[in-house]
Design a protein around this nucleic acid. Structure first.
Lengths: 148, 148
DNA sequence: GTAATATATTCACTTTATTGAATATATATT
DNA sequence: AATATATATTCAATAAAGTGAATATATTAC
């Protein structure tokens, strides 16, 4: 269970040094007192979204730039208080003043089963393309606006 | 691995219903298709910081009173990208779709030097009561919407 | 193209997390 | 206080995550 520590160290390493491949990273980590197999490192890179791209000094392992979408997803998960529905629409309750942001995030996902959203102050109304799709829309909203 | 789902549902339940004790919560969860033992629920409550407090209708399980204002302040600090101004107005740039939330937060602070705000998608315009107060308004915004 | 190098995956094993039944402790009611 | 009710903990079993060695696949170099 050094995983957290190790991955944190990997991030740090890639910020500080130019690392060309996983084997070099293994060596650097070993110098820092962390011994790890290449298989594990491969999985770490995958989980951290690290990719190997070619720069001026040859190849290097690079962390992904945090794109706004992922930041906002984190915000939305905090803002959403409950997700309810009847046969025709879904109602999302949010922290006060946060409905617009949640609705905007949902809009930007461009789910074809959602006809549109209307946001008030702390409530977002979601209209499905057809009432027949309501349960799928609920699932979709739960998956994308909640922590799980 | 239903733990995430279950704890999320518990949060929702406590927002929607008044729940007096863990046994009632067990029943509610069962109605929602989630069967769980009391021991597990006890651990969930502990992890979620849920406490049993006495209100008007007797006891109820309550999520820790996170003052919404403080939560939102944290969100706003992440959402605000820049604060700029000319002699007459202040422009706050935000993450895409987050301007309304930021403007709403600013409104709710009810600063008497601010005449009003208008929010677009990623921009909030702030109008001071008088252009003479612009520098104080800038300071106020910086203090309340930024981390430092 | 082939060889060399780099990364991903499979397999087997170990460690950790999750869970419910039973039980103990704590809290409320009278 | 005694009793009822609610919650926490222990124990044992199960499920899930993490790991390295070996191997397969993919990528780069020539």
């Amino acid at each position: 269970m050094n995983k957290q520590v190790r991955q944190s160290k990997i991030r740090e390493m890639l910020h500080l040094h130019e690392v060309g491949n996983q084997h070099d990273l293994i060596r650097l980590l070993e110098e820092a007192g962390i011994r790890v197999a290449q298989a594990t490192l491969s999985r770490d890179c995958s989980e951290l979204g690290i990719i190997r791209s070619k720069g001026l000094n040859g190849y290097r392992l690079a962390l992904p730039e945090e794109n706004p979408g992922n930041i906002i997803k984190g915000l939305v998960e905090v803002e959403v208080l409950s997700i309810q529905s009847n046969e025709a629409v879904v109602i999302i309750k949010t922290l006060p003043g946060r409905a617009h942001g949640v609705g905007s995030f949902l809009d930007q996902l461009k789910n074809s089963q959602i006809l549109g959203t209307i946001a008030g102050d702390d409530t977002v109304l979601v209209i499905p393309v057809s009432v027949a799709q309501i349960s799928q829309v609920i699932s979709y909203i739960q998956e994308n606006l909640s922590k799980n």
